[in-house]
Design a protein around this nucleic acid. Structure first.
Lengths: 204, 204
DNA sequence: CGCAGAATAGAACGCGCGTGCTTTTCTTGT
DNA sequence: ACAAGAAAAGCACGCGCGTTCTATTCTGCG
């Protein structure tokens, strides 16, 4: 069985990642987090040693949640268009299920740290770069399998598809209109369809 | 000539909107802003009366800059596809020119306030809703003029086009790769083209 | 069970924050 | 040029922050 300290730590990070997805990592105060978890300020603090370490641990924790909820399920889908779809649909699903209280953890924190160089920013961008590369790789594989036309640049296709789901997130958080999820899915579906047709046209 | 107070106020807001575009409206501290403008804390404070009023004034100031730099030029373009393009290309231009030091002011502050109800959040979303409605209206006009097919939902088309340019902003701020601007322009161009072809196909 | 050591609590610190009050300096209209 | 009033500065306040040190309580192994 896990030791007590580790269990406490995990429960702190569950709360902190939820809180940070709403209001960012900076407004995570030690006192506030202590109150939210029922610990004392110093008791909580001892788990991390500094606020920056708390932020880094929170980012890592959120990353492991994201991988478990979105990436791993999608990577078990078959290579090709199916996997592209699994990644994007899975991402929208994760937003709709409200895995984090304030939308996508990384959308919030990336905007917050885009102009604050340092280890926290680095850790966040690392995760975003990984996500981008999963998407791009999935597009390449679909091309290699002949499911999508080879003439489109995989990076650009990934950019466009990612744009749809990211925009769904920000629009939903701001305006609360759930139609954007359907919009995003339709946009993705149509775009993938158009890349298939392109292949067909060339192949003919 | 403008009175002294008003000139000072404007120069404060120039600085505060630039700063807020980088690190958000919450981390705008009265003391820090005073130092950045060469005023005393209390001297600066007297212009606004509270931090929230400073934030609101900063949002309004940023909005007027955005309108001057992006919206007004685009609205002087002829109705139809030309105006859609002027809005989106103008937006990308505004990012490339670095009108605000930290990218788009509203991208930063919207993410920051998406989960903080109150007048500041309201003021921000108001601007974003306006931008969205400009885009959507431009798409509708292009349809009315017969430049774009009528079967596509204008709201969804606006959603997709906006997604491209918004994603360009966030990717650029995070990774500093200016290729995303070309990616976004190409994506917009292609999408508009596909809606034109749709019309042609139907019309034939 | 009992004790070593981990886990948590408690109290205190220096600091920067937003804000209010009083005083000084500068602007502007006559 | 001078007075009225706007603009800015100076100073002090209470508060919550991150952090440290010490004391207490709890946990799990022999």
């Amino acid at each position: 069985m896990l030791k007590k300290g580790e269990r406490t730590r995990q429960s702190i990070l569950d709360v902190s990642s939820a809180l940070a997805s709403q209001n960012g990592l900076e407004s995570l105060s030690i006192g506030g987090l202590a109150a939210a978890t029922g610990l004392s300020k110093s008791g909580l603090f001892a788990h991390f040693g500094s606020k920056e370490e708390l932020q880094l641990a929170t980012v890592d924790h959120a990353a492991s949640i994201f991988v478990r909820e979105v990436v791993e399920p999608a990577l078990s889908a078959p290579r090709g268009v199916a996997r592209i779809w699994a990644l994007l649909d899975g991402f929208l699903d994760y937003l709709e299920r409200g895995v984090f209280a304030g939308g996508c953890f990384f959308a919030t924190t990336a905007a917050e740290f885009k102009n604050r160089p340092g280890p926290v920013r680095d850790r966040i961008t690392e995760q975003l770069a990984r996500w981008r590369s999963y998407l791009e790789r999935a597009v390449e594989q679909a091309q290699e399998l002949g499911e999508l036309g080879r003439d489109a640049d995989a990076r650009r296709v990934a950019f466009e598809l990612n744009a749809f789901v990211q925009n769904a997130e920000s629009q939903f958080e701001l305006f609360g209109d759930a139609r954007v999820f359907a919009d995003a899915r339709e946009a993705v579906r149509e775009r993938l369809e158009s890349l298939r047709e392109l292949r067909a046209a060339r192949g003919a």
